[in-house]
Write a protein that binds this DNA or RNA. Sequence first.
DNA 1: GTTAGGGTTGTTATAATATAACATTATGTA
DNA 2: TACATAATGTTATATTATAACAACCCTAAC
Lengths: 130, 130
Amino acid sequence: MQKENNLSKNQQIIFNLIHKSPEPLKAYTILFNVQKKGIKAPPQVYRVLDKLVEMGKIHKIESKNAFVACRNSDCEISKATAFSICEKCEVVDEISDIKLSKYLSNFNHKKGMKFKRFNLEFFGLCKKCA
Amino acid sequence: MQKENNLSKNQQIIFNLIHKSPEPLKAYTILFNVQKKGIKAPPQVYRVLDKLVEMGKIHKIESKNAFVACRNSDCEISKATAFSICEKCEVVDEISDIKLSKYLSNFNHKKGMKFKRFNLEFFGLCKKCA
DNA sequence: GTTAGGGTTGTTATAATATAACATTATGTA
DNA sequence: TACATAATGTTATATTATAACAACCCTAAC
């Protein structure tokens, strides 16, 4: 079992890269950037990405097939994620809004489905691009 | 300009297929199913899908790269979409909840971003699978 | 210390998803 | 008619993601 916050070599390399990136990174962008560090093939990247998502260290922006580091202590292992995405400059911000998070976590589907997790993506123009 | 609700041949073929499907359809599944009707290549499918999304006739389930017909009069050209997704049987339902839709449409980001659109995906187990 | 198990890594090949670029045909409208 | 716009057809290719298998490295139990 993975120790808390104790990342393996490849996990650390890829997490660092994503963490210091101001923008979401795509799997192959990551691959190109870590090849000099010995991570040479797609499966190595995708495996680490899956693991980091599972740990809640990063999130996948589904509409962009790209990954960002988690900046939020409220999303508890990626069970409640929300992002704002600028359609022009493509800046992505993780939204930390406890009210929003609670509202959605308590939302119950009419058809009796019990939700374990949600992902919300807002699109628009950021302050700079508006 | 496309007349309201007046679909072209390929659009009609692909919309019909998606509309009558109980589950989200992927682009290549669609392609295989319409090849007998003369739609032979991926770009033909993707173009129609883009157009139908733009018209609000279908929605893309981002986490599944699949498409469902819009069952909802409230999402006004796909500006406010929400889905429930069963992680076991993969059933997807479009959520029509005016309160939820209003709540999210009125949500304002702290950083001053003005949202034009959102997409929300809930995950869990449906009644049957729970 | 050895050995068994789980997690991680390395590697090759290939599957699945999506778009570029360009030629052609239809449709609506001045 | 003639022009503009949308839709279609086609080939090739780019991008995103996984299958499958071998090897390695812990560490906990015997």
